[in-house]
Design a binder for these strands. Structure first.
Length: 127
DNA sequence: CTGATGACTATAG
DNA sequence: CCTATAGCCATCA
């Protein structure tokens, strides 16, 4: 099953899938940075590749793409664009405070390690 | 093969 | 905090 994938080992063809898997594991109410997702997906410094995958997502996707933001805490989409506003709306809907296109990473940043501490290791699969 | 292009990032001023 | 710059890296013309 391989949940949070082993770092550094993805063939180019597997990367999109790994990236989507990591994004899907970001809990609601939290945000992760492009670089963080890339690292967890085994891409090393492939932050831009994460952006590429998210940009290619179909419109009604189930993937919580809104939880991925830039390392500075700012949303990466062009401020004011339709997609930007959608992201703000989705984030606020799940309890994330967004102010001037920014999120406080100290407050909402996803910490997988802490996640495991609180929820226990290997979330196992749900029927 | 070379060069341009990004939902990126770290650093310097 | 903001802009400018230089790395980064898969894709594509």
């Amino acid at each position: 099953m391989v949940e949070v994938p082993l770092r550094r080992r993805a063939t180019v063809a597997d990367r999109p899938g790994r990236i989507r898997r990591v994004v899907a594991s970001i809990p609601a109410g939290c945000v992760a940075t492009y670089g963080q997702v890339a690292d967890l997906a085994g891409l090393g410094r492939g932050a831009r590749q994460v952006g590429r995958v998210l940009a290619a997502l179909p419109e009604g996707t189930d993937l919580p793409w809104q939880r991925v933001i830039a390392a500075t805490g700012r949303l990466a989409l062009p401020a004011g664009s339709p997609a930007f506003r959608t992201q703000v709306r989705l984030l606020r809907a799940e309890g994330v405070a967004v102010r001037r296109g920014r999120v406080d990473l100290a407050r909402h940043g996803w910490r997988p390690d802490l996640d495991e501490l609180l929820w226990g290791p290997a979330p196992a699969a749900m029927p």
